[in-house]
Amino acid sequence: MGVSLGAGVALAHFQGREDSADPAARAPLSAEPPSVAPTTASPSPTPKPTPSKKPTPKPTPKPTATKKKTPAVPQSGPGTFTTATASGKITGTSGTLRRYRVQIEEGVDLSARGTAEEIEAILAHPRSWAAHGRGRFQLVASNADFVIRIATPDTADALCARQGLNTHGELNCETTDGVVVNLKRWMLGSPTFSGSPQQYRHLIINHEVGHEIGIRQHMGCGGPGKPAPAMMQQIKGLNGCRSNEFPYSEEGIYITGPIVS
């Protein structure tokens, strides 16, 4: 009995010192260590690429329609003329040969040679007189059967007045020695003609040369919507007809109307 007691006391004393040797040892074994938040550094946000600014395209300027300047037409000139030195081949295969020369009033901004060549082309057109047996024509510089003069309005009036014709500074005429073309009509065309001045020149030459080949009278409109005859004074009004610069249609038919003067 005594030994047993001493052994128990000694055991108890030993256990007591072990229990107090480290206060941490008294913590329950099952206790988990306090959780520590991980100190992982949050990654720096990736910088977004800065979009490169494209230069704003400048609007393409719209083309500005340029108005054609109206040619300046002098009212008067010296009354003297320059003769075109050009000469050409005979146009047409039948009928009387008529040689003509072209004259431009001095001081006028027209080439005598260039104008003569344009008139030559008008008379050679397949819808004009020569192509339909109404005569043959040849551009010459001298020894002409008739002359085509282009003159300022005042000079044209003076030349036409010698034939008893009043052209009012606006019209062309046919005289005993040829054709007088008002420069205003040659350059600007006619307010009653729907085509260009270049087209109207065909009408001027075809109409006046028509008188030269013997068609003395003027014609009227052949009916509403029909092409006006070349021998109609279209500048005075179309009366329901359509503007037309040629004596013949595309089918080769002579364009006529009632005789009016």
Rank of each mutant, 00 (worst) to 15 (best):
A121L: 08
G135F: 00
A116G: 06
S94G: 14
R101Y: 03
T96H: 10
T115Q: 10
F137E: 01
G92L: 10
E105S: 01
G95Q: 08
Q103L: 06
G107K: 00
Q138M: 04
R127D: 15
N143E: 14
V140M: 10
A112L: 03
G135I: 01
E120F: 03
V108Q: 04
S111P: 01
A141C: 04
D109M: 06
E106Y: 02
L139I: 09
R101H: 01
V102Q: 01
I104K: 07
T93S: 10
R127T: 13
G107D: 00
E106V: 04
Y100D: 13
G135M: 06
A124M: 10
A144I: 09
G107C: 03
E118M: 11
R136K: 12
I90Y: 08
R113H: 09
E118V: 03
H125W: 14
R134S: 07
A130S: 15
I119H: 14
E118D: 15
K89D: 02
I104Q: 06
E118S: 11
R113Y: 02
F137S: 04
E117S: 10
R99W: 15
Y100E: 08
E117D: 13
H125A: 15
E120L: 03
G95P: 03
I119Y: 13
V102L: 02
R99F: 12
R127W: 15
T115I: 07
I90M: 07
G133H: 10
R113F: 01
Y100A: 12
A116L: 00
A112M: 00
E117H: 09
Y100H: 14
V108S: 02
L123V: 14
G135N: 07
L123Q: 13
N143P: 09
H125I: 07
E120D: 15
E117I: 06
A112G: 02
Q103F: 10
V140W: 14
G92M: 08
T93W: 04
S111T: 08
R101A: 01
D145P: 15
L97N: 07
A130I: 06
S111A: 02
V108F: 02
A144M: 11
G92E: 01
R136C: 07
E105D: 02
Q138G: 03
A144V: 09
A116H: 07
I122C: 15
A131N: 10
G92N: 15
T93Q: 07
L123P: 13
L110W: 12
R101Q: 07
V108T: 12
A141Y: 07
A141P: 00
I119W: 09
P126F: 04
I104M: 03
R101G: 02
A141T: 07
A112K: 05
S142H: 05
T93V: 01
A130G: 06
L97S: 09
I122E: 13
R134M: 05
